[in-house]
Every structure is written in C-alpha cells, then in structure tokens.
Design a binder for these strands. Structure first.
Length: 286
DNA sequence: AAGACGAAAGTGGTTGA
DNA sequence: TCAACAACTTTCGTCTT
C-alpha cells in the first residue's frame, strides 16, 4: 500500500508532482515514471522496485542493499542514475507506454471522480495487460478506459461504460470492444452491476423521495425473486422499477427523464415495465 | 403540446450448426 | 463461417392527458 503525499516536490526525472510514498520501504516514488526520489531513508530490502512479476525478474540482480556505511550522496546519486538509465534502455517502449498510460489514467479517473483505490486497481489491470502483451494494436486511450471500467465494476462503483468512454475521448463502441477483449484475455472476475447501487445513483440524480426509492427497491426485489431480471440489462430493469414506483406514488417523472439519467431509451423502459407489471400482480394492491 | 405508446427497421454482439 | 437470435436502439406515426 502507498499513500498520497501533499509534497510540493516534483520528480527529478520527469518533473511530475504525482509522488507517493511506499509505506513498506518509505521511498518517495513517482507515479509517472517510476523514479525513486528519497535517498535519506535506508531501505533494508532490495533497493529496486518492481512493478510486476516480469520486471521483478528482470531487475533481480546481485549486490548489497544500501546501508549507512555508504554516505556518499554523489556516489548514491550516480548509482541511481545508472540504474534508471539501464531501466529505460532495456525496456524503453514498455516504460514509455506505461508512463503515458498512467498519466492518462489519472486524468480520466479525475474527471470521473474515482477514488484512489479504483485507479490503483485499474493500474494493476493495465500492468497485467502490458505483461500479457495485449496492448499492441490498441490505443492507450481505449485500454486505459477499459481498465478503469473494469476496476469500477470490481470496486462496485457505478460508472457507465459510456461515461468512462466519454472521459477518455473515445466512443462507447470502442470502449466496449476493448473491455470485452481485456475481460476475455485477463480472465478477471467482474461482478455483475449491482442493481441496488444503480437505484441509489439514479434516484439521487432524479431527486426522488425516500418512500418512492424504498418502493422501487421493493419492486426490484420482487422482480428479482420472480426471475424477471435475467438476461435484461440492469439499467433497464432499474429504470423501470423507478418509473413504476413513481407512478404508484404519484411522483410525476416522465419516461424520457428517467431514460436519460439511466442512459437508455424510453422504449426499453416501456418494454421492461410492461413485462414487470404483467408478472407482478401484487403491484395492484399497492 | 407534452408525454406515452408501439410498430418497424437497424445495430452490434452471441450462439450454435 | 454464417445465419438465426436476443436485447436494445432509433425513428416515427398515433393516441391520451
């Protein structure tokens, strides 16, 4: 784990201010280029820092870890520079790709207001993708967007593929294509979209009252129990439940309004809610 | 006039022979 | 590899409030 630092310091190597401390080693590390910046802390372990298995193997080498017996700052600095040079020359394109991707990822995550945990998950996914050589032939933008979307799903955060794609300046279609590819290749476990979370999000966007929200949840629960939700997009089901709840509570919301916030069409809401009311006879009593 | 309705055609992906 | 298929969208004419 690492923590953000409100350190005004910039990276010596690339000038970025996105620095984090590695809580295990206490090193100050640049998230942009991977440079290790703090030399005052003595690290008892190996002094290199691997991003993934492949690098770990590549970087493993013989040599004593830095100790207090070596004070010479200049010597230390030169060693560090040599180390970095070796890194960049041996793995240049990968490193540059990663640098670019991570900065793009931070930018997109920022516009989506994603918590740090999700961005870190996405970064892990991206590194895995690099490791498996899945990037070639795809744009950084689209793979980054896919990784972020996958991370959101894994962290149970509601961010639509469309929103992620928009933030990454690519089309929904392209994001979907790359997401499917990543999902297939990485065999990552991705939970289905949590419909309760969807209700929470839509309800707050639509400013719907608490009682109506509760009613929508009840309807969703019943529909789920009666297997009316299988094979249907969660957005459509959720939107229909909210629409029905509004109707029952005389809280006027148009199909268009709800459809827009759920990023689906009115037609889909109509189809879902027709199916639901046909099979949820209990609604009549409410 | 706005909202709801539903038919019909189109889209992009999955499945299965 | 291709056609059938399911879910969803787009579009548009019509009905309802």
């Amino acid at each position: 784990m690492s923590a953000v630092l409100d350190n005004p310091r910039a990276c010596d190597e690339c000038g970025s201010t996105a620095l984090v401390t590695d809580s295990e080693t206490g090193e100050l590390v640049c998230t942009q280029c991977g440079a290790v910046l703090v030399e005052t802390i003595i690290d008892q372990g190996p002094e290199w820092r691997a991003f993934d298995l492949e690098q770990q193997q590549k970087l493993t080498r013989v040599g004593a870890p830095l100790t207090l017996t070596i004070h010479d700052k200049e010597q230390e600095r030169q060693y560090r520079l040599r180390k970095w040079q070796r890194r960049t020359s041996s793995n240049d394109s990968t490193q540059r790709n990663l640098t670019h991707a991570l900065s793009e990822m931070n930018r997109i995550a920022n516009t989506l207001n994603l918590p740090k945990s999700a961005t870190e998950t996405a970064a892990m996914i991206y590194r895995r993708a690099i490791q498996r050589r899945l990037i070639r032939g795809r744009t950084i933008q689209s793979v980054v967007a896919s990784a972020l979307y996958m991370a959101c799903r894994q962290c149970n955060l509601i961010r639509s593929l469309e929103d992620v794609a928009k933030a990454a300046n690519i089309t929904r279609k392209e994001a979907a294509r790359n997401y499917r590819f990543l999902h297939k290749e990485l065999k990552q476990d991705v939970p289905p979209v949590d419909r309760d979370n969807l209700i929470t999000k839509f309800v707050s966007k639509l400013r719907i009252s608490g009682p109506t929200e509760q009613l929508a949840r009840q309807i969703l629960k019943k529909a789920s129990e009666r297997k009316l939700t299988i094979g249907r997009a969660p957005e459509g089901i959720t939107a229909a439940c909210i629409y029905i709840a509004c109707k029952l509570n005389k809280e006027e919301r148009t199909q268009g309004e709800i459809a827009k916030t759920a990023q689906i069409t009115e037609v889909t809401i109509r189809n879902r809610y027709k199916e639901l009311i046909k099979n949820l006879d209990f609604i009549v009593e409410l």
